[in-house]
Computed example of a mutant assay.
Amino acid sequence: MMSARLYSVEEITDQAYEIFLELAPDNLSEADIELFNEYREEAGFIEDSEADESWAEFVSFEIEPEAFVQVLVGLELDGKDMLFAKILISRDMDAPFCHLVWPRGEA
């Protein structure tokens, strides 16, 4: 079922970050956007990892570890991680998929 056409983890992480930047104004508060923009150069992080179990409540399919990457976007300030977005993105060039969760968007 898997196609052999996969983006590299680095490529798909970059794509996830671009999507985050595009959608942030509609999903984060003005204060969060200002905070992120102010500190992202020195304290920002973009981490990729295998998708965790929490995605089961958001997507109705089995997440194949080799086909999807979980990307976390946030800031590390005063030794604490502030998560701005959690992204599930497909590496499959022929089956694009991206879902974002905005942990700070509930404010």
Rank of each mutant, 00 (worst) to 15 (best):
S54M: 06
E50A: 01
E42G: 02
A51T: 07
F84E: 13
D78G: 07
E106V: 09
I89P: 03
S29W: 02
E106M: 04
P96N: 06
W55K: 00
V73G: 10
A107W: 05
R5I: 08
D92K: 10
F61S: 11
L23Q: 14
S3C: 13
H99P: 01
A24W: 11
D32S: 11
L77G: 09
L77Q: 13
L23Y: 05
L75K: 03
S29K: 04
I33F: 03
F68R: 10
G44P: 07
I19F: 09
I19K: 06
L83F: 10
L77A: 10
M1G: 15
A85M: 04
N37Y: 10
S60Y: 07
I87S: 07
I33A: 05
P65A: 10
W102Y: 02
S54R: 12
L77N: 10
A43C: 00
N37F: 02
I63D: 06
G79P: 13
E34F: 02
A4Y: 05
I12C: 01
M2R: 11
A56Q: 09
Q15D: 10
I33Q: 13
I33V: 12
F84V: 12
F97A: 11
V59W: 00
R5G: 06
L83H: 12
P96S: 10
V59L: 01
I89W: 03
D32M: 07
S60A: 13
I87G: 05
D48S: 02
N37P: 06
I33T: 05
A4R: 06
H99G: 04
D52P: 05
E64I: 10
S54E: 08
F36C: 08
M1S: 14
E41L: 11
F45W: 06
A56P: 00
R5F: 07
Y7N: 08
F20E: 12
L21G: 04
F20L: 12
D81T: 11
